[in-house]
């Protein structure tokens, strides 16, 4: 047969592409994600049960027996906002590394998008939107399970989904900028996971209040999006209190980091795709 004739009824509108390009990228990523939906759903539901059970029944019982309450609440309630934040940050560390390398190199779909009318910026925006969604889905599940465990007593509890995703973006977009810049995989992502993400997670007032760390380690917490995100989460889930200026710092730090990383990625990707 011959090639199908052009359809004059369908006009391509550059203005529409300019406006919605990032959403087309998001749509593409969602289609790909559907291949993994059962494992995503299973992990999203399974993870909070396992962690909350271990921390609530296991460690929580131990802590309550020895130390009583932490920050005025039982240990599970204290630690739950940290667990959800760590879980979301873990997803960010995955989704902002290998898939970025994949799209530029191993299966260069970003190159294909760019050969179509999409700009580097739209591609990056679309991927960031997707990862935000990819973090939000399990975060919602996490919050629901937290609520079931009675670990999110405040009415504002659901806000922890937003603060956790914000923390994920804050740690993730700078990593994404780095991932977009590397051309050979020499195990850098594993190093990032162990040398950056893990310490930022463990030494950041997650399992215990930051003040309990020796003063010379406390700066790690101040650098860590996980600490800022968790502290915000604690205010939302059980009404932890802190000076307003500190809250402003938490939010400001996370937002600035997320935006700087995001913008940086756009720069790197623009240069990389234009060769």
């Amino acid at each position: 047969m011959s090639a199908p004739a052009a359809d004059p009824a369908v006009l391509i509108d550059p203005a529409r592409i300019r406006r919605f390009g990032a959403l087309y990228v998001l749509e593409h990523q969602i289609r790909v994600m559907r291949n993994y939906r059962s494992s995503i759903v299973a992990t999203a539901i399974g993870t909070p049960f396992i962690y909350l059970f271990a921390f609530g029944i296991g460690i929580g019982t131990l802590v309550s027996a020895n130390a009583g309450r932490v920050d005025g609440v039982d240990y599970l309630t204290f630690v739950a906002p940290a667990l959800i934040c760590m879980s979301v940050v873990g997803i960010a560390a995955m989704e902002f590394t290998y898939p970025i390398m994949l799209g530029f190199k191993w299966n260069p779909t970003f190159v294909g998008m760019n050969a179509a009318p999409l700009s580097a910026r739209q591609i990056v925006d679309g991927v960031v939107l997707f990862v935000a969604l990819r973090m939000a889905i399990p975060a919602v599940a996490y919050y629901v399970v937290m609520a079931l465990f009675g670990a999110a007593p405040s009415a504002w509890g659901a806000g922890v989904v937003v603060t956790s995703v914000l923390a994920g973006l804050a740690i993730g977009t700078p990593i994404m900028a780095y991932a977009a810049s590397i051309t050979e995989d020499k195990g850098q992502f594993a190093v990032i996971g162990r040398v950056i993400v893990l310490p930022l997670t463990l030494f950041s007032g997650t399992m215990f209040p930051l003040e309990q760390l020796p003063w010379f380690l406390q700066w790690i917490g101040w650098l860590s999006p996980v600490w800022h995100g968790t502290e915000l989460g604690r205010q939302l889930t059980y009404g932890a209190t802190e000076p307003i200026w500190l809250t402003v710092i938490h939010v400001g730090y996370l937002v600035v980091l997320a935006i700087v990383g995001w913008r940086l990625t756009v720069r790197v990707a623009t240069r990389r795709l234009d060769r």
């Binding site: 391509i12 593409h28 050969a115």
Partner: peptide, 29 residues
Amino acid sequence: LGVVPQADNLDNELRVRDNLIVYGRYFGL
């Protein structure tokens, strides 16, 4: 333009027909 690059960049994680549809969406179709 239509572009057939030297190195294929089809999305290996999508099926054949979905590759066409996803690509067409980039043009806002």
